[in-house]
């Protein structure tokens, strides 16, 4: 445990000195503030913020995770020759780099929400958007780690897969489901749609936001089916449970790969 905090602290120190995590936080601060000033406040602003968040956090998180693996190759190898076990090192590195990124988003977005009073007016929705952004950061940094470890010697492939996964999950997914529904409209597709939604963390987060704001018009097909199937409360519950699974599985796969890998 002492060792773990030692590694995490060291990562924090070097990251904060690298400054671009701070820049990332500032971007969200500026964005949220601008949205609040021009959007008039209220739920619309939180919705716009969550749209930006759903698009960018996955991309930034994955790129960040994979870049870390590629950039600190020799350093990680040096650390592995020290008398520590791989599991501790893995958790130390993962927590050390994912938590500052998460903190940057949460702090950057919550400060303007605080001084414009939204945090007081609509606390549950604000906290939900912030928390979802945090969880998505953790999930996609872990995915970046997995991709970096899996394509350790082939950076082009690693980055290629990162972009493809992001495009697929953030942009194409809903369209593909819609197309499937259009093509197979004669069959009962409810279960298929529910299942498909579970397989995409970004979709899950999006549906949670929509359920919280109760905006059916923006819900999209998957969201509407989700609500009809589960209802709002159970829907939120199921979606957050699935997000927890999404957090656990990539981090666990990353650990497995890290433990068995030849460096």
């Amino acid at each position: 445990m002492k060792l773990l905090t030692h590694i995490v602290q060291n990562e924090w120190k070097t990251l904060i000195r690298g400054k671009w995590v701070i820049g990332y936080g500032l971007i969200f601060l500026l964005l949220t503030d601008t949205l609040l000033r021009f959007g008039g406040g209220g739920p619309e602003v939180l919705l716009s913020l969550s749209n930006v968040m759903l698009l960018f956090i996955p991309l930034v998180g994955m790129i960040y995770g994979i870049l870390y693996i590629y950039q600190s190759r020799e350093f990680v190898e040096l650390l592995l020759t020290q008398p520590i076990n791989r599991k501790t090192l893995y958790w130390g590195l993962y927590c050390g780099i994912s938590t500052p990124l998460m903190a940057a988003f949460i702090l950057g977005a919550s400060l303007p929400l605080g001084w414009h009073g939204i945090l007081m007016i609509d606390p549950s929705a604000s906290i939900m958007v912030l928390a979802l952004g945090g969880v998505l950061t953790l999930i996609f940094v872990a995915l970046g780690f997995v991709l970096g470890l899996a394509f350790y010697d082939d950076r082009i492939k690693g980055f290629g897969f990162t972009i493809v996964i992001w495009l697929f999950m953030a942009i194409l997914y809903d369209g593909l489901i819609l197309m499937a529904i259009f093509m197979f409209g004669d069959y009962p597709l409810e279960r298929f749609v529910i299942g498909a939604t579970m397989l995409n963390p970004i979709d899950l987060a999006r549906i949670m936001v929509m359920l919280e704001f109760d905006i059916s018009a923006l819900m999209g097909y998957t969201g509407a089916v989700f609500r009809r199937f589960f209802g709002t409360a159970a829907g939120l519950f199921t979606a957050s449970g699935m997000l927890a699974v999404w957090l656990a599985v990539p981090t666990w796969i990353g650990l497995r790969v890290f433990k068995k890998k030849d460096f």
Partner: peptide, 13 residues
């Protein structure tokens, strides 16, 4: 104790 062939460390440490 191990001294590697290529020495690269975190840049801003």
């Amino acid at each position: 104790g191990y001294m590697p062939q290529v020495a690269r460390y975190p840049e801003n440490m």
